[in-house]
């Protein structure tokens, strides 16, 4: 066995184990941490596929940002573990059926003639000095610039939607809107009253 294959199996085994623990761990925080481990191993496998940039992005973005946020949310929510487990047995038949269907489909697709290993030959390895990152960057900003810009607009929509659906003005706050503050004129604040001079 080649060393590369050995590394692949190590990563794959860790990933499968971690993925199983995600759904079996009792404590949701543990489950989230196992998901981090699964992402890490997936990153390792991508590295073996010579997709260094994607591997590092996976670790940076998913592990570094998304999962940390996720952990925060899980810790903030007061999840009752026992209530989560209610109905496990009643959902089991449906869940098991779907799982079996998925496995059968996967076997059909991967084991079938069309997507088997000989139908998908291994691509030739890239030369030394070939930069994955550079190639992705070049493609993103040239050929794929249109969908790339559209993706940025999709993110903008998500932001606008999230803000507009969740931002609520709290009532009873004493803070002043800066716009009103800035547009104040002297006449609003000071009133000059003309009074005749009076003798003491």
């Amino acid at each position: 066995m080649e060393f590369k294959t050995f590394v692949f199996y190590v990563f794959a085994a860790i990933m499968v184990f971690a993925a199983l623990r995600v759904i079996t761990a009792r404590n949701p925080v543990h489950a989230a941490l196992f998901l981090v481990l699964a992402f890490f191993s997936a990153g390792g496998i991508w590295m073996l596929l010579e997709a260094e940039f994607l591997a590092i992005t996976l670790v940076l973005v998913y592990v570094g940002a998304v999962m940390v946020l996720f952990l925060f949310v899980i810790m903030m929510l007061d999840i009752n573990v026992d209530r989560m487990r209610q109905g496990f047995w009643s959902y089991l038949p449906v869940g098991a059926l779907i799982a079996i269907l998925l496995v059968v489909e996967m076997v059909l697709v991967l084991g079938g003639r069309y997507f088997a290993l000989d139908a998908m030959p291994e691509p030739p390895p890239a030369q030394a000095g070939y930069s994955n990152t550079r190639e992705i960057g070049r493609l993103l900003y040239t050929d794929y610039v249109y969908p790339f810009e559209l993706a940025s607009l999709v993110l903008l929509i998500a932001m606008v939607a999230a803000v507009t659906l969740t931002l609520r003005k709290r009532k009873g706050l004493k803070s002043i809107d800066p716009e009103i503050q800035l547009s104040v004129k002297r006449e609003d604040r000071v009133r000059l009253v003309n009074m005749p001079a009076e003798k003491e």
Binding site: L150, L153, V154, I157, A158, V160, A161, T164, L165
Partner: peptide, 8 residues
Amino acid sequence: MMSLSLYA
């Protein structure tokens, strides 16, 4: 883009 805006 269309669907996300509509959901919101």
